[in-house]
Nucleic acid binder design. Structure first.
Lengths: 239, 239
DNA sequence: AAGTGGTCTAGACCACAGG
DNA sequence: CTGTGGTCTAGACCACTTC
């Protein structure tokens, strides 16, 4: 069970910062102090601090210390790879998922090329809408390779695809490449989404890979433009 | 001047991957081999590999090795904090910056609150448009705290603000918090941008901080929606 | 069983901030 | 000058993949 030590230290410190048990603007204890507190070597402490820094919790300043940043206004999660289910559970609003389609497909040429598929491979096609307060604002179209995800049911898709894939199938999701653009709403958008006078959607296209570096999913997530908001934390340089 | 050793190793390996001198899909040499090749300890090699992994160059698999990912289609840079100048220099297109306004302001209440300004602080307000092939597609509105950036000229703004701030003023940019939304074009957008039938803009609002964790800039970057594209690489989990 | 990456350690030296 | 974070090292043990 136990994660690594530096992850535990990261979790402990990030929780303290979130709950304001450590004030923003103040300095964290020094690395040597933390090293003593957590009974860990300094390099282990530094791994935890590096993770805090990457995720916008602290700013390290050489010769001075680690300043705690104001993390209170940052909508959870800042960026990264998170399922809709995980997102919704952090929100106060009432979200609902509706499954409109769940079929096995022989991929067309475009999808074949995009996902680098062999001739005999079939894919699951799932179409779902996400509603908040009765308004459908997100339309998700997923394509999953059947040789990796053999069986799917409407129930799984309504609940959480990622939860099923990770916990029931035991697959581990590694990374994704995403692209965000703005496009005019299609007939399909108008059919499944509650469109207002606004005729635009934000389209997030993702190729999702397992930890084995194997591609297993392509997703097109279409958001009603007026409901779309993306929050990011970025550091200068390539670290 | 030399950077740290692990950054050199990172630069060397990432360049080799970019130039396809290491084939995508193949395995990197093992950490022990790299350790010998670069005459570095294994932990140092691992810092370089962790950076490659974060930036989407490789996927590490325990017990197996580090797989080189296909990085060829990823528009430079994937995400992060990069100035327009740096972006444009990586592109084949012909970009041009035009400065429309450069004034010192007493901030209004909204800006005061947003930037956490004292009563007597003044800010530079810069309005610039970015054109590609004769079409103005980006409108940037910057607000910079004058106590940090004492003097600005149209020439500097036309060239590169970040270049001036980092190289001439010697300030170091640390991180930024960003928010992306889609909005209807304003009169100002219509005045400065070459708007087509499409009446929407993607608005990227950023608060930019120095390495000292001091806020020094607020920017509103307004992109013609049909020209906006954001590419991202995301890993699962908080590492 | 052998080889891979994942973690942790104790110690060393350097670069920078502040008194 | 002291104390801070930044880097590097050599060695140890563990977890996982592969044969």
């Amino acid at each position: 069970m136990g994660k690594s030590k530096f992850v535990s230290i990261y979790n402990d410190l990030s929780e303290k910062i979130h709950k304001q048990r450590i004030e923003s603007g103040s300095l964290l204890p020094t690395e040597n102090e933390l090293s003593a507190q957590y009974r860990a070597s300094r390099e282990t402490i530094r791994k935890a601090l590096a993770m805090l820094s990457r995720n916008g919790y602290i700013q390290k300043i050489q010769g001075k210390g680690s300043i705690v940043l104001d993390v209170s206004r940052q909508t959870f999660p800042i960026s990264g790879l998170t399922s809709f289910r995980e997102l919704a559970s952090h929100s106060k609003d009432h979200w609902k998922t509706e499954v409109h389609q769940l079929v096995l497909l022989k991929p067309d040429n475009h999808l074949k090329m995009l996902m680098n598929l062999q001739n005999d491979q079939t894919v699951w096609n799932v179409i779902r809408s996400r509603s908040v307060n009765g308004e459908a604002v997100i339309l998700d179209r997923d394509y999953l390779i059947q040789s990796i995800v053999p069986m799917l049911t409407a129930d799984i898709c309504e609940r959480s695809l990622y939860d099923y894939i990770e916990n029931d199938l035991g697959l581990k999701i590694g990374f994704a490449k995403k692209e965000i653009t703005v496009e005019r709403a299609t007939d399909e958008d108008n059919r499944y989404l509650t469109m207002h006078e606004d005729s635009h959607v934000v389209v997030v296209r993702s190729l999702v890979y397992l930890e084995s570096a194997e591609l297993f999913q392509y997703t097109e997530s279409r958001h009603r433009a007026d409901k779309f908001r993306f929050v990011d934390f970025a550091r200068r340089g390539h670290q």
